[in-house]
């Protein structure tokens, strides 16, 4: 089994080369800059310091971080509430229609997400399409103020991130064996009980994967918060972007982005643990 074909070597070299040059090195640069000091001309300079991290402990940034987590959490819950029934419904369609439906979920990716965010602006503004429609059909008299609110940012995040929730959920629903559901019914469980005790545990890995895929980017998507939220620094991503582009404080920006990475790593760890736990429990049940 240990034979190395040239093809295999080439693939491995390319993959590792790619990972080292575009993932490892940039992250090392961010990591090391976060311990340096700000320099007006060269962006960073020695000596090594922990000042950037102590600055992060400032209640001000803690507040932004918490607020960012909150926005990301709401986005995730909304995506889950929309994506779960959707993925279930798609999995019940005839096999020849499924690829088409999933294809339709992916189609928006063909347009740049920044362009799609600007399109949301046209929909949500006071003189925008949604307000015009609601006024025309007589549902409201005064236009709703939707743009430049937290709600608008969440709507934008949900719009862009929903496919990342649907796809992993669809994958688990596809694997969900119909006979298990029938067995559950045969053994006297009602619809609700079958859902809670059979469907939910079996699809949980997909739920967690989808939540992670939505929650992690949601904290960093600064342009959504800028365009739809009025540049009011709603997400950690905005703080990081401002440090790099406007304040030119790279070390602090690097520290902030490293903190975001750590939070994401912790969430991934929690995911890994929970999947293991679910598997073990599954085995216990099977053995019992």
């Amino acid at each position: 089994m240990k034979t190395r074909t040239p093809f295999k070597t080439a693939v491995l070299t390319v993959t590792w080369g790619w990972m080292i040059i575009f993932v490892l090195l940039p992250n090392l640069l961010v990591f090391s800059s976060s311990f340096l000091q700000r320099d007006e001309l060269e962006f960073v300079r020695l000596p090594v310091t922990l000042e950037n991290y102590t600055r992060l402990l400032d209640p001000l940034y803690g507040g932004v971080m918490l607020h960012s987590l909150w926005m990301a959490a709401v986005t995730t819950v909304v995506c889950l509430l929309l994506g779960y029934p959707f993925a279930f419904a798609v999995s019940r369609f005839p096999a020849r229609l499924k690829p088409l439906l999933i294809f339709l979920v992916i189609v928006p990716f063909w347009t740049n997400s920044l362009v799609r965010t600007y399109a949301m602006k046209l929909l949500l503004s006071t003189n925008g399409i949604v307000n015009d429609l609601l006024i025309t059909i007589g549902l409201i008299d005064e236009p709703l103020r939707m743009l430049y609110t937290e709600g608008a940012v969440i709507a934008g995040l949900v719009y862009i991130l929903l496919p990342f929730m649907i796809l992993p959920l669809y994958a688990v629903f596809e694997q969900l064996r119909r006979d298990l559901l029938e067995a559950s019914y045969d053994l006297g469980a009602g619809r609700w009980e079958t859902f809670v005790r059979v469907v939910l545990p079996l699809t949980l890995p997909g739920v967690i994967a989808g939540c992670l895929l939505v929650m992690l980017p949601a904290m960093g998507m600064f342009f959504t918060a800028d365009v739809l939220g009025g540049a009011k620094n709603l997400l950690v991503g905005n703080i990081i972007k401002n440090q790099f582009l406007d304040a030119r404080d790279w070390p602090f920006g690097a520290a902030a982005s490293l903190m975001l990475t750590i939070v994401m790593a912790l969430l991934l760890l929690a995911y890994y643990r929970s999947v293991k736990l679910i598997r073990r429990r599954g085995n216990d049940v099977a053995l019992a």
């Binding site: 602006k121 009025g230 540049a231 009011k232």
Partner: peptide
């Protein structure tokens, strides 16, 4: 009182009615 910070095209929020 601030609804939006904009230096890209500050006329737009006025035109959009925001």
């Amino acid at each position: 009182n601030v609804r939006v910070y904009d230096s890209e095209a500050p006329r737009m929020p006025y035109l959009e009615g925001e």
